[in-house]
Design a protein around this nucleic acid. Structure first.
Length: 781
DNA sequence: CAGTGAGCGAGCTTCCGCTTGACTT
């Protein structure tokens, strides 16, 4: 009898399932979606109820062909794609392509790859849920409409014409970054003077230890000073001690988003790196599926965890927990991310090890007991005034899950008070304390920090925007489009004041701290800011943080059969199309123009705006008699924040440094950064040099050095044929015009002896057999 | 490779969400 064919999405999953199901089934994977909307005319028939036109993309034709031929030979085809909207649609597309009747074809689902789960799924097959499929089609079509209508609006209205894009997810992601930047720019730090006293007391062994207590905060220095004065000659007595038990509970096992956040905080990984390593672990069978929004663990995994915890730490450390997803948008087609076998504490692969151990610890901790704490608060009376000081401390009574894992938090979630808590020595009521010193320290409020890749993912997830499979690609997209940059920012030094009461004397000191330093954070570019403003002005609805949540609710109604998908799309498209047409007709070109003042030399207006090649400054106007002067903004400058002085500075380039070997040296900034030009040749200027201040004596050695290096690189030159024989980082190569040609290995040995005929032969040879490259696909890249 | 910055019109770009490879100029 012919075998049954069971189709899943992921090939790694196929292997495991085939082992579980045994002889009767052949398990194959379709590698995700097998059809997509055609690109021409959006792939949607706007005049016929938005009827979609699907095609099998080129890179999926091979797998579709294979599945077709297998389906023909098989006894019965079973569809086991993921149990979510996208998975349901994949099953339906498979029916369409393989010629199966969706009304009778067997469709099964499971959320975990375990023997009981799969065997019970096979016992109760259903058929494809067309309402759910239609909800997916609506999602797909709406995203296509938004992306393919909005992007062309940008092409028309932006002077920069390199492939700009807009979409339901990416445009809101950029908006989040843009708004945070503006909040930070507008932020005015407020300072307060916080009272902190250090006392000495005896610990259990009779040794002197120091602990601190906190007092009030004062808005002004004068208030803090007055308070300190009232404390002169004071005595300090403990008046009250409160001891309260407390507990901490472990976090849920990892989802894609929480894994990305913790790998960023604890290991400093970007989201793409995390996903790459997780993929490797998944493919080698070490962890469960890594693109998931579920926090639940399979029964098998729970049993495995119980026995591991009991044997490693004892029964006292075990606590069974079932986690619930807080996120309403979760589709929970898979389990949480966990090790497949808890007995593997680590993995061989060094790259993956740290991520694996993180997953292991988090999973382990999730089924361990609470940590038990004792929180102590002591009130301290000041004999000379009515204020009180408060000392708090925390003692860990039982470590519980903290034995293996503690979740990190982002800076913005940690309050000052928590930071201060430490241990307290044993104290008693009426106890007299010895004051070591009391300080009023000036503290400034801080703006919220800029987003990291991972904290942006967290924000997107909270808003229900994007899916586990798209978080990392979305960030790549907004970086690639130049809407956002990932970089560091140096902090600035600022003074703060401290008033100190010590040995019954008050003194004032000033200290310095660095503030505003950021590492590996997301900054909006001028392009990102300008495009966001434009989209918000004309497409407020799409840019709304709740847009996705609203349409998701409608997709749910489609999925439950309450509304027809075409009607839903129609309700969206009619007003949207009106906005698009109106914008194309009425909106001015996007420029972000800002007038900074008057150039003192020419007396003309200086403006900054977006130009064809990026942000720039301009002196004078287009229709002036004299042509306006232009200068490119530096990478670190922004249209929004640059001032007149800095903008004028930009016009000092190109600078003529004077003569060298008979011709002038000039320095400027070009398309590829700062450079020195001499004798019609160009030499890049390293980061350590400033083109605005570099002098002739510094510049000439650079020219001499780089010229020598270039000569060394050159083996031979044939002027007439425009052919050069050069030495590159990957060995010698031939350059003709702008194209490079690789020299075959066997001829690399004696390149010096190569003559023109032989070189031409190599060029012809390479032209005839071009090296294999990633085809520049119009599709995914 | 090292300049540019107006507008026209050719012909191009673009979305989100499922999946893995095969590229190294």
């Amino acid at each position: 009898m012919a075998k049954n064919l069971l189709i899943v999405e992921s090939p790694a999953k196929a292997k495991t399932i085939e082992r579980i199901l045994g002889e009767d089934f052949e398990v194959k994977s379709c590698y995700g979606h097998i059809r997509d909307l055609e690109r021409a005319d959006m792939g949607i028939d706007l005049n016929n109820k938005y009827k979609p036109r699907y095609i099998v993309p080129e890179d999926k034709q091979k797998v579709v062909k294979e599945l077709k031929s297998l389906a023909k030979k098989s006894g019965e085809v079973w569809l086991a794609t993921d149990e979510d909207r996208e998975g349901e649609a994949i099953s339906w597309h498979l029916c369409e392509v393989l010629g199966l009747d969706p009304k009778i074809t067997k469709r099964i689902v499971f959320h975990e790859i375990t023997k009981p789960a799969i065997e019970s799924a096979v016992k109760k097959p259903r058929t494809v849920d067309m309402n759910l499929v239609n909800a997916q089609q609506a999602r797909r079509i709406l995203d296509r409409i938004v992306g393919f209508e909005l992007s062309p609006v940008l092409w028309r209205k932006m002077s920069m014409k390199n492939n700009l894009s807009a979409g339901r997810v990416q445009s809101v992601a950029v908006r989040i970054i843009a708004e945070r930047e503006r909040e930070i720019n507008a932020f005015l730090p407020q300072s307060t003077f916080r009272i902190e006293a250090s006392f000495s007391s005896k610990d259990i062994s009779g040794k002197s230890v120091v602990f601190s207590a906190e007092g009030k905060k004062y808005a002004e220095e004068s208030g803090a000073e007055k308070f300190l004065q009232t404390c002169l000659n004071a005595k300090y007595t403990v008046t009250d001690i409160q001891v309260k038990p407390g507990k901490k509970s472990p976090a849920a096992p990892f989802t894609t988003s929480t894994l990305q956040q913790e790998a960023s905080r604890k290991l400093g990984y970007g989201v793409s790196r995390t996903m790459l390593l997780a993929q490797k672990l998944y493919e080698s069978g070490k962890i469960t599926y890594m693109r998931t929004d579920s926090v639940s663990l399979s029964e098998t995994a729970m049993e495995n965890l119980q026995s591991e915890i009991n044997s490693k730490f004892g029964n006292k450390y075990y606590q069974k927990r079932a986690f619930k997803n807080k996120n309403e948008n979760a589709q929970e087609a898979h389990e949480a991310i966990r090790p497949t076998y808890m007995e593997n504490m680590s993995v061989e692969d060094a790259d993956c090890r740290r991520l694996y151990e993180l997953i292991w610890k988090r999973t382990m901790a999730s089924q361990m007991s609470d940590a038990e704490l004792e929180k102590t608060t002591a009130l301290i009376q000041i004999s000379t005034n009515k204020e009180e000081l408060k000392a708090s401390g925390e003692v860990l009574k039982f470590d519980g899950f903290l034995k293996v894992y503690r979740e990190d938090r982002d800076d913005d979630d940690i309050s000052e008070e928590e930071n201060l808590e430490g241990m307290l020595p044993p104290l008693s009521v009426h106890q007299q304390l010895t004051l070591l010193e009391m300080r009023a320290t000036e503290r400034f409020s801080r703006p919220l920090p800029r987003y990291t890749e991972a904290s942006l993912v967290k924000k997107l997830e909270e808003l229900g925007i994007g899916r586990p499979s798209t978080y990392a690609p979305t960030i790549s997209t907004i970086l690639k489009r130049g809407y956002v940059e990932k970089r560091d920012k140096e902090g600035v030094i600022r003074n703060f004041r401290i008033l100190k009461l010590k040995e019954n004397k008050i003194s004032k000191i000033s200290e310095q701290e660095t503030t505003g330093a950021e590492k590996s954070k997301l900054f909006p570019t001028d392009l990102g800011l300008v495009v966001t403003d434009f989209l918000k002005q004309y497409f407020d609805d799409i840019m709304d943080y709740n847009f996705t949540a609203r349409i998701e609710a409608e997709f749910d109604e489609v999925a439950s059969g309450k509304i027809e998908w075409n009607n839903m799309i129609d309700d969206f498209y009619i007003p949207f199309k009106k906005d698009v047409d109106n914008t194309i007709e009425k909106a001015e070109r996007i420029s972000g123009e800002r007038e900074l003042g008057i150039d003192p030399v020419s007396g003309k207006k200086l403006i900054v705006r977006m130009g064809r090649y990026g942000p720039m400054a301009q002196i004078g106007e287009q229709n002036d008699e004299e042509k306006p002067r232009f200068a490119k903004l530096k990478n670190t400058q922004s249209i929004e924040t640059i001032n007149l002085e800095d903008a004028l500075e930009l016009f000092k380039l190109p600078r003529n440094l004077g003569p060298f070997e008979g011709s002038d040296l000039t320095v400027s900034i070009g398309r590829f950064g700062p450079y020195i030009a001499h004798d019609k040749k160009f030499y890049s200027l390293g980061k350590e040099f400033d083109p605005y201040t570099i002098g002739l004596d510094e510049a000439t050695p650079i020219v001499v050095e780089k010229r020598a290096a270039k000569e060394q690189r050159t083996i031979k030159v044939f002027e007439k044929e425009k052919i050069q024989l050069l030495r590159g980082p990957y060995g010698p190569y031939i350059k003709q015009g702008l194209r490079n040609y690789k020299i075959p290995k066997e001829k690399q040995e004696n390149v010096e002896t190569l003559e023109l005929p032989e070189i031409k032969a190599i060029i012809e040879e390479v032209k005839a057999n071009p090296p294999k490259r990633v085809p520049k696909k119009k599709k995914s890249s």
